[in-house]
């Protein structure tokens, strides 16, 4: 069973790209008694070597990213309002009306012009990100400058809710992956494996690039979340993947053509272990695999993801069953890859 309590702790931490320290510290604390060697590289990635029962026949790296999408304070105006830029692919439609936490814990809100003062055509139009600002209650620039700084990270306030077999939270992308990897490190593994918890995935898969360079794996499993569009108003051919139908296995996305033999191996493993799985039904999105598979002379790479609705917004949603079964599948697949010779 994957660890929901651990996931809750991970999701409570704020860590937008480039500001992953709180997440990193927590993960290091969690894995220190269980890993053979832990290094933090210049980028801030965690590289953890875990001893298994036997030496691996193929050097395998498992990857999840620590960072999450968010906002960054770019300007403080004369009236004490803050302007911001998006960090990672945040959709402007999910920003208005959200409450946020800035820097060291200052509360703020992203307001909107009152509906009563809008022209009828404005009512059905998303507010452009450039027209938005954060209100922290300051009445002047001086007051605001005492509380926040340019470059401060901004995160959504969120909830962590496990009603009805789901998990609803901010930052499931990719703390869910981190939780699965931590749980693996804390358990007995059949072979030696290397785990990396990367920074800056959301701003161009930068952390995994340097991590993979150092680890020099022969094979990699990227553990991620991926967009599920199985929601009201979307025809089934556009669902990409669905909650509750098992781990999502990708053959190709916008960053990677996955290793064909490992793709087949992932499907075979799921079938033979009787674990639910689904194939990602779109060539869309991208993740750390894009950087990893093209590192040095190439790394055979596969991605196993959790289907997640409302991926880059204040609250995403995954299914608890998927979280548990995906961890089992990743464990089995990792053992098969690490236990086979490269030919």
């Amino acid at each position: 069973m994957a660890n929901i309590k651990l996931l809750e702790q991970l999701c409570a931490l704020r860590g937008i790209s480039g500001d992953e320290e709180a997440v990193r510290d927590f993960i290091v604390e969690q894995i220190t008694p269980y890993a053979e060697r832990i290094t933090i590289d210049a980028m801030g990635n965690i590289i953890a070597e875990k001893k298994g029962a036997k030496p691996a026949k193929t050097k395998l790296m498992l990857n999840a990213h620590m960072d999450e999408v968010g906002l960054i304070v770019t300007h403080i105006d004369d009236d004490g309002y803050l302007k911001f830029a998006a960090v990672g692919g945040i959709d402007k439609r999910v920003l208005c009306g959200r409450s946020v936490i800035i820097g060291n814990g200052v509360h703020g809100v992203i307001g909107a012009k009152p509906i009563h003062l809008l022209h009828s055509e404005e009512r059905g139009k998303a507010v452009p990100i450039n027209d938005m600002y954060l209100d922290i209650g300051a009445s002047s620039r001086e007051e605001a400058e005492k509380a926040v700084h340019l470059g401060d990270s901004v995160c959504f306030h969120s909830l962590f809710d496990t009603q009805n077999g789901m998990i609803r939270s901010r930052a499931l992308d990719d703390r869910a992956g981190c939780a699965i990897l931590i749980d693996m490190i804390q358990s007995e593994l059949p072979y030696d494996m290397t785990f990396v918890f990367c920074v800056q995935e959301e701003v161009g898969t930068r952390g995994s690039r340097t991590a993979a360079y150092q680890v020099q794996p022969q094979a990699a499993i990227v553990v991620e979340t991926t967009t599920a569009a199985d929601i009201a108003g979307v025809p089934s051919e556009k669902h990409v993947c669905s909650l509750g139908k098992g781990a999502v296995i990708s053959f190709m996305d916008r960053g990677t053509i996955y290793d064909r033999a490992y793709y087949d191996l992932a499907l075979d493993t799921a079938r033979e272990e009787q674990l639910p799985y689904q194939i990602k039904q779109a060539v869309a999105g991208g993740n750390d695999a894009g950087a990893i598979h093209a590192t040095r002379d190439g790394v055979r790479t596969i991605a196993v993801s959790l289907a997640c609705r409302y991926l880059h917004s204040a609250v995403g949603q995954i299914a608890q069953d998927d979280f548990h079964s995906a961890e089992k599948l990743i464990m089995k697949l990792a053992a098969r890859i690490a236990g086979s010779e490269q030919v």
């Binding site: 959200r98 009512r123 507010v127 917004s313």
Partner: peptide, 8 residues
Amino acid sequence: DRRVLPGA
């Protein structure tokens, strides 16, 4: 205000 609803 429907503009604040998606993803809320």
